[in-house]
């Protein structure tokens, strides 16, 4: 069981490597983020970035593509279609990579918990290193979360990307359950016009029915 524990394995690895702690310092002091503006959380990022709260003093900055980024911000609710793109973006990012979920929607669906296109639990599909509660979190909460994440990186706890690699089967199963469905969830729809009838056929059909 202890061998399966990724955190312990990571700690052991870092102890063996003389540069381990030092490397963590550089990683935590320079987090470049890719913000995936899916929902309302994106509006809280400009005040966090600009002069009032200025996240650049922590070494964080926005990056243009997933290839360059370390940190994926999921800022709000995720529809199924968006989830697919998020997974693509996450898998394009280079290790080490971290995910932060903004607000209650990525945690449990938030106010969209009973909506048909919105997923409820982000951590079932990609590993989430840090979640910020709130609807939406204020910039103070965001900065606080980033500082906590920096602490976890320093301690070697933010190892979501290793978990994703090791338990890929489990994540893939959940992704397929939502994205790659082959049968209806509640009750399949029998399209009465599946054969694409023309107007004349439909008119003839209706006349025939009324005659009967």
């Amino acid at each position: 069981m202890e061998m399966d524990n990724l955190y312990l394995a990571n700690l052991r690895e870092e102890k063996q490597n003389m540069w381990g702690g030092l490397v963590n310092y550089f990683r935590k002091r320079s987090m470049w983020m890719l913000y995936y503006c899916t929902g309302c959380g994106a509006i809280e990022l400009p005040p966090t970035m600009t002069s009032r709260y200025d996240m650049e003093r922590l070494g964080m900055g926005p990056m243009a593509t997933p290839r360059q980024a370390d940190l994926l911000l999921i800022t709000g609710y995720l529809s199924v279609k968006t989830l697919k793109r998020v997974i693509w973006s996450y898998e394009q990012m280079q290790e080490p990579k971290y995910v932060v979920g903004f607000g209650s929607c990525p945690i449990n669906g938030g106010i969209y918990w009973d909506a048909y296109p919105v997923i409820n639990h982000l951590e079932a599909f990609i590993p989430v290193d840090m979640s910020i509660a709130g609807c939406m979190p204020r910039p103070q909460a965001i900065i606080d979360a980033f500082e906590k994440l920096m602490g976890e990186i320093q301690e070697g706890k933010a190892i979501g990307y290793k978990r994703y690699e090791k338990h890929y089967d489990w994540y893939k199963k959940n992704q397929d359950a939502v994205l790659g469905r082959t049968e209806a969830v509640l009750k399949p729809w029998n399209d009465p016009f599946a054969s694409n009838p023309s107007v004349d056929e439909l008119m003839a059909l209706e006349k025939g029915e009324s005659n009967v």
């Binding site: 669906g109 918990w113 296109p117 939502v178 209806a184």
Partner: peptide
């Protein structure tokens, strides 16, 4: 708009969105 949709068209009143969400997205 819908991804891989096989159920009833979702804006019909006899489609219950809550049941759908419970049956697909919950723990």
């Amino acid at each position: 708009f819908l991804h891989n949709w096989l159920d009833l068209p979702p804006l019909r009143k006899d489609f219950i969105a809550k049941d759908y969400s419970l049956a697909l997205y919950t723990t």
